[in-house]
Every structure is written in structure tokens, then in C-alpha cells.
Amino acid sequence: MDTPATPNKAPWPQRQPHLFLLLAALLWALIYQALDPTAEALVALLPVERTSHLGGALQFFFYDTPKVLLLLIGVVFVMGMVNSYFTPERTRVLLAGRSEGLANVMAASLGIVTPFCSCSAVPLFIGFVQAGIPLGVTFSFLISAPMVNEVALALLFGLFGWKIAALYLSLGLSIAILAGWTIGRLRMEAHLEDWVREMPRFQASVDADTLTLTDRIDAGRNSVREIVGKVWPYILVGIAVGAGIHGWVPQDFLVQIMGKDAPWWSVILAVLIGVPMYTNAAGVIPIVQALLAKGAALGTVLAFMMSVIALSLPEAIILRKVLKVRLIATFFGIVATGIVLVGIIFNTLV
């Protein structure tokens, strides 16, 4: 007599999602605590002096590479679960029909917890216009989403502490809100491409949320696979550049052009250098860490970081599909001016 086949059991993370999350958090914490001694041990195994330029650069690279990757994996996993509540459709619903001012604040705040970057600018812009969201509110979201995102905040918190992370959060939100509001006051809807302005409007709606905790864990794992899989080369390049700055660039040179006593236009120079660059928070923050360690002024460095993340030439090329040149130039000019003012004011006060 044949024995009935036993149905395959689901993997244990799906059967016990709470236990999976607890064990994953404990493992993450244990690995994180072991990073510094492991980096020092690796340098000690090599035929280099720990106090030499090469030794310092290698220790920086061996320590920061797994640290940044570990922070990124943890944050992207958690935010992947959170982002399952904030789909593009739901974001449009939350913003549609709101008055300007409040809507700018809401849009900038939503940008923190939504996984969109400048690469998503065109489809998001089209969706927002179709939902009837004002132009300035849309720009508040598009500024905040890449610049004040969970990856940037988590890495800043892990590398510099909560005060720097909170400062970056407040400055970034202020720029996103005020720049979006300013663009809205200029009434530049005529500078949308004709095909965008002529699109039919739709009433956005959201289906009932039926995702389980297991579904959200799967969303977090998928986010890690997708996001970390894309950005890890930027991380390695950024940390390698940071290691080179940390090990070899003379401190006096950086202090002269980016230090607290540098001329006021050093902030403008930092922003002009940052705009042509194309990277993300994961790639630029290790460079920021190395610059600060060499004595660069915090306001100048944060202005550089904001310009790299929030403005880029590839983003301008992408947005050209939906915006006319004058509106793109206005957008870049207002955001760049806000970043420069934030850097100058912060350097003056601190």
C-alpha cells in the first residue's frame, strides 16, 4: 500500500518569521562588533607598517567596506519591509488633492521612506502629473527621495552619530520643501513638455493591503538583492577613493581648500565639483568620512554630498524627456543655491 506523499514544508523563515527576524538581528550585531578587530588583524598579517600611509589606507578599506555593506544590507532590508506600505500608487494617493505648503512638507517627508532615485524621475513625474499633484509638490518629492533617503541617514548615523544624521535630515528636508514651494510659486507648468501637459488625469486609488509579515520579509530580501546588487561597485569605488584620501592626501591641502578657514566660495566650488559626479549615498559617504577626518569643514562637505546625491547631469538628461530646458535650469539653480546657502550658513555658525 502506497504511503501518501508528505507535502513539502515551507522554509522555516516563512513558518516562523518573528524568530527569523530576531536571529538575523543578533547575527548582524555580532558581525558589526567584530569589524574593527578583524580589520586590524588583516593589516597585521600584511608586510606593511600600520602607521604608514599604506597601512592607514588598508585599515580604512578593510574596516569601512564591510561596515558600509553591513549597514546598507540592514537598512535596505528594514526599509524594504517599510516600503511595502509606500508603493508609487499609494504615494500618489497621499499627495493628490493636498494644498501647497502642507503638501510640500508631506511630499518631502514621504521621500525619506520611499525607494526612488533620479533613475525613477520620468515615470514618477508622469504619474504625479496624471494624479493632479502640483508641480512644486512633485519637485519637493523628487528632491527629497534621492537626497534624504534611508541609506544616507543610516550610513551617516553609523559613521558620524545621530547629531550629524539629524542635521543632514533637517537640512535636506528644508531644501526639498523650500525649493519645491519656490518652483510652485513660479507657476512654470507651461514649461512641461506638451505631451506631459496633455495627458489625461486619473483618480488614484489603493487596494486593501493584504501583505503578511512573511510577504514583507520577502520584500526586504528582494530589496537587498536589487539595491545592494546595484550599488556595491559604487561602494567599493567610494571607499577606495576615501582610503586614498585618508592615507595619502596631505591634511594641509584639504584644510586650505575645504577647511573652516577656507574662503566662502569654497562651498560653491564643492557644489560645482559635486554636480557632474554621478553616484549615490553609499558611494559618496566614505569619501565624506575621509574628507572630514582630514579637517574639511562640515558645512562644505555636506554641501558637496548633497550636490552629488540630489543633482547630476544624468538626472538632467533623464528629466529632459518631460521638462523643458528652462524648468530644468530653474530646478537645478534653486536647489544648488539652497545647498550653497546651507553650507555657508552652517560653516559660519559652527
Rank of each mutant, 00 (worst) to 15 (best):
L71K: 03
M79L: 04
V75S: 14
V93T: 10
A39W: 07
T65N: 01
V75Y: 02
L42E: 13
L35G: 05
A41W: 10
V68I: 09
Y85K: 01
A44S: 15
A44P: 14
R50L: 15
F77Y: 15
V48F: 13
S52A: 12
S99Y: 14
P47F: 07
D64F: 11
N83H: 11
H53P: 14
Y63V: 06
R98A: 04
D36I: 07
H53W: 12
S84I: 03
A34E: 05
L71R: 00
P47C: 03
P37C: 00
T65R: 03
L42F: 09
T87W: 12
A39E: 02
R50N: 13
P88L: 01
V76P: 13
N83G: 11
V82W: 03
P66T: 05
A41S: 14
T51R: 08
L54N: 05
R98F: 12
L46N: 03
F61D: 03
P47S: 01
M79N: 04
S84V: 07
L42G: 04
T65Q: 04
V75C: 15
Q59M: 12
E89A: 09
T87Y: 10
L71Y: 05
T51N: 09
L95R: 02
A34C: 12
E89N: 13
M79K: 04
P88T: 02
R92G: 08
T91M: 11
V93R: 04
T91H: 02
K67H: 14
G97S: 03
L72S: 12
E40S: 07
L71W: 09
S52W: 08
V78Q: 04
L35P: 02
A41R: 06
A39D: 06
L71F: 11
R92P: 00
T91Q: 11
F77I: 13
F77N: 08
Y63P: 01
R90L: 06
L94D: 08
V43A: 10
L70A: 06
Y63M: 01
P66N: 05
L46V: 07
F62V: 00
L94T: 09
V82F: 13
L35Q: 05
L72Y: 13
L95C: 02
A96P: 14
L69T: 13
G80I: 10
